[in-house]
Computed example of a mutant assay.
Amino acid sequence: MTGGLTGLSGLTPEDPGWQELALCAQTDPEAFFPEKGGSTREAKRVCQSCEVRQECLEYALGNDERFGIWGGLSERERRRLKRRIS
């Protein structure tokens, strides 16, 4: 999945430098890993204005991240997306 696409940040998902620009690194990490049935609203709100959202999503898809909010999507949403693009 990590085909080397470059987002607005100019970084690729393979380049860990995007993580330094991620807004989630400046907020409560617990919001991005809610308990089962917990709200994902706050994490997704942070993701909406994050400049490395695309790199984050590509990283999660390419590394089969199974937990948490990555690139503004939940585990279920990423699975659905992965099925659609496969």
Rank of each mutant, 00 (worst) to 15 (best):
M1W: 06
T2C: 03
T2G: 05
T2D: 05
T2Q: 06
G3Y: 05
G4P: 01
L5C: 13
L5P: 04
T6E: 11
G7I: 05
G7R: 01
L8H: 04
S9E: 06
L11F: 14
L11W: 02
T12C: 10
T12K: 08
T12E: 10
T12S: 12
P13Q: 03
P13W: 11
P13H: 03
P13F: 11
E14R: 12
E14W: 12
E14C: 07
D15V: 13
D15N: 14
P16D: 08
W18Y: 01
W18Q: 00
Q19K: 15
Q19S: 14
Q19F: 12
E20Y: 01
E20C: 02
A22S: 14
A22R: 03
A22D: 01
L23W: 03
L23E: 06
C24D: 01
C24Q: 00
A25H: 01
A25R: 04
Q26M: 13
Q26C: 02
T27Q: 02
D28M: 11
P29I: 13
E30R: 07
A31M: 07
F32T: 05
F32C: 13
F32A: 09
E35C: 04
E35V: 09
E35T: 05
K36C: 00
K36T: 10
K36V: 13
G37Q: 07
G38M: 01
G38W: 02
S39D: 08
S39M: 09
R41S: 08
E42F: 12
K44N: 02
R45N: 08
C47H: 06
Q48T: 07
Q48W: 08
S49K: 07
E51G: 09
V52T: 09
V52A: 00
R53A: 15
Q54W: 15
Q54H: 15
Q54C: 08
C56H: 11
L57Y: 10
L57G: 08
E58S: 11
Y59S: 06
Y59F: 15
Y59I: 10
Y59M: 11
A60S: 09
A60V: 15
L61K: 05
G62L: 14
G62K: 09
N63W: 04
N63E: 07
R66S: 10
F67V: 14
G68L: 04
G68C: 04
I69G: 02
G71Q: 02
L73I: 10
S74I: 09
E75N: 06
R76H: 12
E77W: 14
E77Y: 15
E77I: 13
R78C: 09
R79Q: 03
R79S: 02
R80Q: 14
R80N: 12
K82C: 06
R83S: 05
R83T: 03
R83Y: 13
R84H: 10
I85V: 08
I85E: 11
S86I: 09
